[in-house]
Simulated assay, not measured.
Amino acid sequence: MYSKLTFVLLATVFATCLGAYTCRTGTVVNRPVNNQPYTFPINWDDNQTAPALAAGQDCSWVVTIPQGYYAKLIISGDLTDSVGYIQMVDTNGNVQKTKHENKNPYFFPSPKFTLIVDNQAAATFAFKVVWAPFPVGTSFEALVDLYAKVVDVTKEVFAGKLDCSNSCSMFSFPVDTISFFNLRSVLVFSGLGYNGTYLTSLYQMYKNPMQWIGPPTILYIVNLQASGADDKLLVQSSAFTSDIKLYEELNCIPSSTCTIPLNNGPGKSGLVYAGNQNQTLTDIFMDKTATLTVYYGSQTHFALYKTYQGSTIQKMLPLTFKGGFMTNYIISAGKSIFTFSLSG
Rank of each mutant, 00 (worst) to 15 (best):
P209N: 15
P105D: 08
I116C: 02
A20N: 04
K112W: 11
I65D: 05
Q211N: 08
F189V: 07
T197A: 14
F127K: 06
I75F: 03
Q236Y: 03
P209L: 14
F171Q: 10
V63I: 12
A274W: 13
L146Q: 13
F158P: 01
F285G: 00
S201R: 09
Q96I: 12
F240L: 08
G68K: 02
L73Y: 08
S185M: 09
N276W: 09
F180V: 09
P261W: 02
V62Q: 14
A20C: 15
Q309E: 05
I221D: 02
M326N: 06
L250M: 10
L319S: 01
G137F: 02
E249F: 02
L53A: 14
D283A: 13
V95N: 06
A239S: 06
W61K: 00
F302V: 07
P66I: 05
T259D: 06
T138N: 15
L183Y: 05
A54I: 04
T27D: 15
I75L: 02
L79C: 06
F181K: 09
S185T: 13
L18I: 05
I221P: 00
T307P: 04
E249S: 11
L281Y: 05
T16W: 08
N208L: 00
C252N: 10
N223S: 05
T291F: 14
K128H: 06
Q309P: 00
F40Q: 03
T154F: 07
P209C: 12
K149L: 11
T282A: 10
F171P: 00
F180D: 14
A159H: 07
S172A: 13
S242N: 12
I74R: 07
F285K: 14
A229V: 09
Q120M: 13
F108C: 01
Y203P: 02
T138I: 15
N276G: 10
T6N: 01
T64H: 09
V235S: 02
T289D: 11
D46H: 15
F302D: 09
A11F: 04
S336V: 04
V89Y: 04
A148P: 07
L262Q: 04
A290V: 12
D231E: 13
G56I: 01
L233Y: 02
C258W: 03
W44C: 00
S255W: 11
I75H: 02
S332K: 15
S269K: 03
T339C: 10
W61M: 01
Q120Y: 10
A159N: 07
T257C: 09
V136Y: 01
V63S: 03
P109E: 13
F125M: 13
A20W: 05
L187H: 12
D58S: 14
S172Y: 03
